[in-house]
């Protein structure tokens, strides 16, 4: 079985007597370390699929296996443990806790695992340096730009070295330039730790960062397309050695 395997998945919302088929019948396999993009127009059911993959919602029918566990059948308690061990989440609106500073926000998944403060602060600090926010550790979310906040969000998603990271429109609130930087950062992190990334977007440009693009229309997969010209961090390294690498520095160092 593939690392992630979705079988016969259906989600129906009932509103009064009316039934909304958000997902009709989804079958999908994703390999470990793969960056998979779910692409579709608004209302096509992308978010619904992602939420179900992440176990935030229960499907009406069907199974979702992640690393051998049927997420659709887990109890609340087991789900929490499963999330601690397997998943990270990147939100469109960052969702940092406003009264925590960057370091504390990044350390949240480790805190829920029960890791002592000193240990998780060390790991979180390393993670923040990795996303280029080494000097913003004590900053609160409202003292940072959107791009910086999303970097903190990325650091938080990867800090516990999960098997899979889910991201729902992670760049939806960012401008084009920052979008590029954030996307590159996410891809680099995934490659570095061999983490599976499932990315939801309606933007073809962003889909270009993934290995595979799953097209979804009205709750059905219409086609799955392999991305040949996928972005690779090595491209950057090559560029770095070249003459014009100005854009690169801005990604690693914080703005």
């Amino acid at each position: 079985m593939a690392f992630i395997s979705v079988k016969n998945l259906r989600k129906v919302y009932k509103i009064g007597n009316e039934k909304v088929y958000a997902l009709k019948k989804i079958d999908l396999d994703i390999e470990r370390g793969e960056i998979c993009c779910i692409l579709g127009t608004s209302g096509s059911g992308k978010s619904t699929l992602l939420n179900m993959l992440a176990g935030l919602e229960k499907p009406t029918r069907g199974d979702i296996f992640i690393n051998g566990t049927n997420v659709a059948k887990l109890s609340e308690k087991k789900l929490a443990r499963f999330r601690q061990e397997n998943t990270g989440f990147i939100f469109q609106s960052y969702n940092l806790i406003s009264q925590f500073n960057a370091l504390e926000n990044v350390g949240m998944p480790l805190m829920f695992k029960g890791m002592p403060r000193s240990k998780r602060d060390k790991i979180s600090a390393k993670m923040l340096k990795l996303v280029g926010l080494g000097s913003r550790m004590k900053h609160r979310p409202n003292q940072m730009s959107g791009g910086q906040q999303q970097r903190v969000g990325i650091a938080r998603a990867f800090v516990a070295k999960p098997n899979v990271v889910f991201a729902d429109e992670p760049t939806g609130n960012l401008d084009t330039k920052t979008t590029d930087e954030v996307m590159r950062l996410m891809v680099r992190m995934c490659r570095k730790y061999n983490i599976t990334l499932i990315l939801v977007t309606h933007d073809l440009e962003i889909a270009g960062y993934s290995d595979r693009i799953v097209h979804i229309i009205d709750g059905e997969i219409t086609s799955i397309e392999k991305n040949e010209s996928v972005y690779s961090p090595e491209d950057d390294e090559k560029k770095e050695s070249g003459p014009d690498n100005n854009t690169e520095n801005s990604e690693v160092s914080e703005q």
Partner: peptide, 11 residues
């Protein structure tokens, strides 16, 4: 958010 990040409901 806490739930998504894996916080136990007991906590």
């Amino acid at each position: 958010i806490m739930k998504v990040l894996g916080c136990f409901i007991g906590n």
